[in-house]
Simulated assay, not measured.
Amino acid sequence: MANKVEKTDDEWRSELSAAEYHVLREAGTESPFSSSYETDPTVGVYACRACGTELFRSETKFDAHCGWPAFYAPLAEDRVVYIEDKSLLRTRTEVRCANCNSHLGHVFKGEGFDTPTDERFCVNGISLKLEAD
């Protein structure tokens, strides 16, 4: 994987839209059902919108009917980092890009989805860019 990306807030602001900056750099959340990636059938790789690191494959995407793109596994475990998130009433696990530390979403376990991992990486579509095969 590429070297770690380090940029100032001003550099990020100049490269990202205001909405992208809010989600990726301020750990915001886009509105549910606002991303076409949730149901996009295109085969390819989902990369980090901020730095281009390949994060998820379309083959691991599934329709969780949750309002955001859902994947059952990252492309490789070294592509993401996990941070315990206690900002709401229950503990969640935040998922960030390991290369640039951008917020992607959260991972939930044990929800009963019929996937190989029984995990749901609930990812903000705005934090991704799809590179078709």
Results as ranks from 00 to 15, higher is better:
G44E: 14
V43M: 12
F33N: 08
E30I: 13
A50S: 13
E38F: 06
F33H: 08
S36N: 09
G28M: 13
Y37C: 03
E26H: 03
A50M: 13
S36D: 09
P41I: 15
T29W: 10
F33A: 04
V43E: 15
F56W: 08
L55Y: 02
G52P: 00
G44I: 15
T53D: 01
T42V: 14
Y37A: 02
T42P: 00
C48F: 06
T53F: 02
D40L: 04
P32A: 15
D40C: 09
P32S: 14
E54D: 12
V43W: 03
T29Y: 11
R49S: 07
V43N: 11
T39G: 00
E30G: 04
E30M: 08
A50W: 07
L55R: 03
L55W: 01
V45P: 00
C51M: 10
V43Q: 13
Y46G: 01
A47M: 04
T53A: 11
S31R: 14
F56S: 02
C48M: 08
G28N: 06
F56D: 01
E30A: 09
S36I: 13
C48W: 05
E38S: 07
Y46L: 09
T29R: 13
R49V: 14
G44Y: 10
G44P: 00
Y37Q: 07
S36F: 05
S31G: 03
S34V: 14
T42R: 07
E54C: 02
F56V: 08
E26Q: 15
Y46R: 06
E26V: 12
F33P: 00
F33I: 09
A47E: 10
A47P: 00
G44T: 09
S36A: 06
G52N: 02
E54L: 05
A47R: 13
Y37N: 03
A27S: 11
E26C: 08
V43R: 11
T39W: 14
S35Y: 04
V45N: 03
T53R: 04
E26A: 10
R49A: 14
R49L: 13
T29P: 02
G52A: 12
R49T: 07
S31M: 13
E38G: 01
F56L: 08
L55E: 00
G52E: 02
S31T: 12
S34C: 09
G28K: 05
G28Y: 13
T39V: 14
V43Y: 04
G52S: 06
Y46S: 03
L55I: 05
Y46C: 06
T39P: 00
R57N: 08
G44S: 10
R49N: 09
P32M: 15
T42W: 09
G28C: 15
S31Q: 12
Y37S: 02
G28E: 11
T53E: 06
S31V: 15
T39K: 12
C48L: 07
S36V: 10
F56E: 05
E54Y: 03
E30C: 09
V45Y: 02
Y37H: 03
E26F: 07
